[in-house]
Amino acid sequence: MGAMIEIENLQKRFGAITAVDGVSFTVERGTVLGFLGPNGAGKSTTMKMLTGFLPPTGGTARIGGHDITTDGLAAKQLVGYLPEGAPLYPDMTPEAFLYFIAEIRGLSGAKAKARVAEVAEKVSLQKVMRQPIETLSKGFKRRVGLAQAILHDPQVLVLDEPTDGLDPNQKKEVRALIRSMQQDKVIILSTHILEEVEALCSRVIIIAGGRIVIDCAPGDLAAKSRWHNAVRLELATSEAQRVRGVLAEQYGAEHVETLASETSGTSLLVTTRDRRPILAEISQRAQKDQWKLDGLHVEHGRLDEVFHELTRVGTRI
């Protein structure tokens, strides 16, 4: 069986502006794909094409084997979509709205009612089912949007910034929901929040200027950071001079940085060109020379720094 989603050289131009410029990738079942990129990078446009809202200018995509340009209706049936900002009909109640979605998705009568109740329970909407949507809090609105997207138990779930604008508790809830749904599905979610990618995704694609700049596992993304496997030492300022000298001799002066410390002492950051693990070496040396250290930490790499590098330069690594 082929991949659930196959995207081939997808392009979208709005007049003179090229929003998406030849994006290709495939996604297998069971994948939670994080779609990252600065605003205007083409994330939303790609998602809008995938879900059938916008027709591509060039290229195509297949969802479960159905081509979005020639067999759009069949493709749409496999997809649940939460558009950016989770637009909803403010005058409707969640109950009426979800029942409407159920009917459009081919359920009716008792079956539709049962499914609406099931989904409402899953996203904890039971208490507000009969209030107009416009009176609900942002968190509840987002849950209505999610409920709408998962109502027909779709094989592909496309979520455009599902946690944007929510408070930390609500973000946590939405993430837990997404995590609970990931089995046997393809979930594609876009976000600005890097920690979300680490927490949720099994794969990450960063897009900038309408092109894919990197496609890897979230763990590998951190490895691209020049701080990956770097070692941070915290020590008294009096001690720092001596230690700095020793480290500079071994790793090169340009690889030893003095950081502004959070405590009263000094922090030194040691990096290597090939980002190899150096904690053991340093810790041995520290014991041998009897450095008076307040702390010794390994850095895993900073996603925000990698993100910034990748999307600023806009070139492939």
């Binding site: 809202f53 558009p83 909803l88």
Partner: peptide, 11 residues
């Protein structure tokens, strides 16, 4: 309201 996006991505 942006609901057109919701509407037009339904089957």
């Amino acid at each position: 309201q942006g609901t057109i996006e919701l509407l037009m991505t339904l089957p």
